[in-house]
Design a protein around this nucleic acid. Structure first.
Lengths: 224, 224
DNA sequence: TGGTGCGTTCAATAACTGATCATGAATCTC
DNA sequence: GAGATTCATGATCAGTTATTGAACGCACCA
């Protein structure tokens, strides 16, 4: 899950980004609207958190621009206390929910989850495909009901694949959704993770949960 | 268990806060409604004790604001003798119980416990996971039915983990919920507590009640 | 005032994980 | 079918993170 966080106050942005990463999200953060727009356009963002009062390009304008670019990931806006006009304007511009500052990080997380669930990002908290089940709440994975130990990155790769089960996922998609910054193109890290996942999820090579589509990417089998 | 205590009279607030800490609660106290609102929104509060007659923002307003922010932790209000309107208004605003001043600390504690039990703050008074059981009422822990002696902080760590059994709990989560002020320290205190807990709860390393998720945190095993 | 308990800190080691490399297999292009 | 791409795979490495035993120091109590 890749989050775009656009907030000018470092005191809010940094700890929030930390917390989000902590929760397993991949975070792109920007301190002004222009940078936010760039990130939102360049990367495959899954959900946005946007402060309304931003330098360079206001949050409202940022959202309008993103929507104009056909970027329809859900957006949660942050508004200062009492500025309810901002809130209304933001929602009209295409935001999906709002939160009044100051807020507690826990609250934002709850809202974010609710938003993702509502908009179908996480349609269900438990994703399943054949014998493998992934619970996004506990970040745990089971194979035939038995727990499977995954490392942080293995989990991220699998989560993204299962979230888009049945769809072809290119390696750049994966890298983009999994790493905070851009990454070396000529590294086979993803292949290695896929290899490890296959080994853990299908040791006998019977279910083949992850197909390879040469030249295009991978696909997580829908059902079996 | 983190309590938000909002009371302007220091003569009542301070000893009460002490007593609560004494009982194992983590206490955030504020002397006016505005500060209370800030704390209530900033921290992950589990239960609130709010005086109705507060400066800056009345107890009633405070409760309304908190509820508006989707903060649904149970709240116990304190009202002056005879002001039964306050009581009614408070309950209407979203409080869950009330206590008339002056009161005995013991009485408040009893009410608080009853409230927590009733509202499911402690969904159950006894949390269990595998061979270990934790009774929040007596703050006692048993392993296979045999009592286990824990220090105050060991207990807090365990309680928080068991309250969120199955979920990944980062070390920052733990520090935030366990210490009154979240001072970010770059120390390994949490690791040490986890170590001591493991030693006491699973001396033979057979049940592994506390899993480590490297880079992510810890997880208390759901069942075994 | 000396002892005890407990939270914290320190330091050394152990374990893990993400990245990389090297090599071989599969598939595509011409 | 030869050569080029792309992917698979096992091994290894270096940096990070967790574990662990011990010691420290403060508060409390007798």
């Amino acid at each position: 899950m890749r989050v775009l966080l656009v907030e000018d106050e470092a005191d809010i942005r940094e700890p929030l980004a930390d917390k989000l990463r902590n929760q397993g999200y991949t975070v792109d953060s920007a301190e002004d609207g222009a940078a936010g727009l760039f990130l939102g356009r360049e990367y495959g963002i899954d959900v946005g958190i946007v402060d309304i009062g931003l330098p360079k390009l206001s949050g409202i304008e940022l959202i309008r621009e993103l929507r104009k670019l056909d970027k329809h990931f859900p957006i949660l806006i942050l508004t200062a206390r009492g500025n309810w006009q901002d809130k209304v304007e933001g929602l009209e511009a295409g935001a999906d929910d709002y939160l009044v500052k100051p807020f507690h990080v826990e609250e934002l997380l709850a809202r974010l989850n609710a938003l993702l669930r509502r908009t179908g990002g996480w349609s269900q908290p438990v994703l399943s495909g054949g014998p493998v089940e992934l619970d996004t709440r506990t970040q745990s994975v089971t194979l035939h009901g038995d727990p499977v130990e995954l490392t942080a990155y293995e989990y991220k790769v699998l989560e993204y694949m299962m979230l888009h089960a049945g769809k072809v996922i290119s390696k750049t998609d994966l890298t983009e959704h999994i790493y905070d910054q851009d990454w070396d193109r000529d590294s086979n890290t993803i292949e290695v993770f896929v290899r490890r996942l296959r080994k853990k999820l299908d040791p006998d090579e019977r279910y083949k949960p992850i197909e390879t589509l040469r030249g295009r990417g991978y696909r997580f089998a829908l059902e079996r």
